[in-house]
Design a binder for these strands. Structure first.
Length: 259
DNA sequence: TATAATGTTAGACT
DNA sequence: AAGTCTAACATTAT
């Protein structure tokens, strides 16, 4: 579910809310989470994002890593309200409780850094560099959409934002990444600089179940140009948005605008 | 009932 | 060898 803008939304809200707080207890409700870090007594010093990973930096050089995968979300509760359905983990702090809610149960929570966190290129929210993109894609025949979503190259872009960035850049998702001209990479970098910060400002895209730390929907769904819009008119040319399947994922684009 | 869903990855195939 | 595709994970919603 959550991509870079959604995870960044949580990071900002957490940083504001729980920094300096001490962990009272950790309540594991789903054994599938496996061995969990012993966090009780630790103080949360910072919350950092690496791609779609959230890293909690704790006192005494401890840390915890969270990846929400498809349906994971975090919910902050200050009162002793009922524990929501699909809660897999509850972290109790002095001022409230943090629930990991995750119907599909794909999310992972680790005491150590995951095997692969570093991507080749800088964080997309800091701005993509056309030259670096062209260099990283050089010689690759993989489609540009797969390239944008490949966390080894770029960390944080998932299916929604790959589709939206390519629509904004007017680049066809099936174009081989290695064959793109520098002008196309410039268009993609410029598109990402519009799409991603706007999605962060909107607290993410709620097309089904995404909610922020306080249970509120995001508003970026109002800005989607192609995602999930097959058969609807392109907002730029009026033509029909098409859907195809790439690497098993729905892929939406305007065939007349995106070449 | 069948299909698809915001992610990742192991294993098969080319 | 490198790149690409499929299935699997588990559950809900249409």
């Amino acid at each position: 579910m959550p991509e870079l803008p959604e995870v960044e939304t949580l990071r900002r809200q957490l940083q504001e809310l729980v920094c300096g707080e001490r962990v009272c207890s950790l309540d594991v409700r789903d054994p599938k989470l496996g061995e969990l870090p012993s966090l009780a007594g630790a103080r949360i010093e910072a919350v950092v994002r690496l791609g779609k990973w959230l890293k909690f930096e704790l006192s005494r050089a401890r840390e915890a890593w969270l990846h929400l995968r498809m349906t994971g979300r975090l919910l902050w509760q200050e009162s002793a309200a009922e524990i929501p359905a699909h809660t897999r983990l509850t972290i109790t702090l002095s001022s409230g409780r943090l629930h990991l809610i995750d119907p599909r149960r794909f999310a992972v929570f680790l005491a150590r850094p995951p095997r692969v966190t570093a991507s080749l290129l800088p964080d997309p929210l800091a701005g993509l560099d056309a030259r670096l993109l062209a260099e990283a894609a050089c010689g690759r025949r993989m489609p540009v959409k797969s390239f944008l979503m490949d966390q080894r190259f770029l960390a944080g872009i998932g299916n929604i934002y790959a589709c939206e960035i390519l629509a904004e850049a007017a680049v066809h998702p099936q174009r081989p990444a290695g064959g793109l001209a520098l002008a196309s990479w410039k268009a993609i970098a410029a598109a990402a600089a519009i799409v991603l910060p706007r999605a962060v400002a909107c607290r993410g895209t709620t097309v089904s179940d995404w909610r922020d730390l306080f249970g509120r929907s995001g508003t970026n769904q109002d800005h989607l140009k192609v995602y999930s819009r097959q058969g609807k008119p392109c907002l730029r040319c009026g033509g029909e948005i098409e859907r195809l399947v790439m690497a098993g994922r729905g892929t939406w684009f305007c065939p007349s605008c995106q070449k």
